[in-house]
């Protein structure tokens, strides 16, 4: 038997009865959630297309915004307000022009720049209006998108609560990128929002602690947008836990 055959045999001989380790109930529950999110994102895109076509703009799935420089003179610059020793890099909040109402999705407040680049595009987050008849307390979602050099915003993934209210204190839905391998868009960092006086958010994955980057929403400073740099946490990797702390280091 040569080495290659030995390797093949060894790879098969070390198989274990793994099927007992996987919880199919959890797998199917998470799969249904993922499917629902994809449909929501698809519905949002369709709504945007409708709005743009009614307006005679015809830009496909892109929502056109006036060109915005990377750091306009009037842009608000904010840091995560964490203690200096634990402060992630500052986050830029780019003040957009006045929001235009839309029957589908509506952008609310400032677009949060992350500094994460995909060629010339930048990963950004922005709050959008959502309408869930079964959850009247949920009116906003958080969109992960990309901003092109021309200032266009391209939607990727939206997350929103599906029950209760979107402003209850604490963590809300966390967005994991479960894109299909064939999806041409760049992977979305794990992201979400927290309502409360958080100045530091730390996730745990695979026994490691990962610091999130933070930015407060311009419309409601209690709403803290957070995301994990893909260098620190690969997109799609599930967090084992996540905590938020206030400026005094107290657990929220």
């Amino acid at each position: 038997m040569n080495e290659l055959e030995q390797l093949r045999r060894a790879m098969r001989a070390t198989e274990r009865p793994y099927h007992d380790d996987l919880d199919l109930t959890v797998i199917m529950r998470d799969g249904r959630r993922l499917r629902r999110r994809r449909r929501l994102a698809g519905a949002g895109t369709a709504a945007l297309v409708s709005v743009l076509l009614v307006g005679g703009i015809g830009l496909g799935v892109r929502w056109t915004r006036p060109s915005t420089p990377d750091q306009p003179p009037g842009s608000a610059v904010t840091g995560p307000a964490a203690p200096p020793s634990a402060t992630p890099p500052p986050t830029r909040l780019i003040t957009p022009p006045p929001t235009v109402g839309a029957s589908g999705r509506e952008f609310l407040g400032a677009v949060v720049g992350t500094g994460i680049r995909y060629g010339t595009d930048e990963r950004v987050f922005y709050v959008v209006a959502v309408d869930l008849p079964e959850a009247p307390g949920v009116t906003i979602g958080l969109m992960a998108g990309r901003r092109t050099p021309a200032g266009e915003l391209v939607d990727d993934i939206v997350i929103n609560d599906v029950r209760g209210t979107d402003r209850r204190p604490g963590f809300h839905e966390i967005g994991y990128d479960d894109a299909a391998p064939s999806d041409p868009r760049p992977a979305v960092p794990t992201f979400g929002y927290f309502v409360g006086p958080a100045t530091r958010i730390v996730g745990t994955a695979g026994g490691r602690q990962v610091e999130a980057r933070l930015a407060r929403w311009s419309t409601d400073p209690d709403l803290v947008v957070f995301w994990f740099d893909p260098v620190d946490l690969a997109p799609g990797v599930r967090l084992d836990g996540i905590v938020a702390r206030d400026a005094e280091g107290r657990l929220l």
Partner: peptide, 19 residues
């Protein structure tokens, strides 16, 4: 093993979502 189970679970979740 733990990383492997997580990865297999992720693959099955995504497969079910597109089932």
């Amino acid at each position: 093993h733990h990383q492997a189970e997580d990865a297999a679970q992720t693959a099955l979740v995504r497969t079910y979502a597109s089932w």
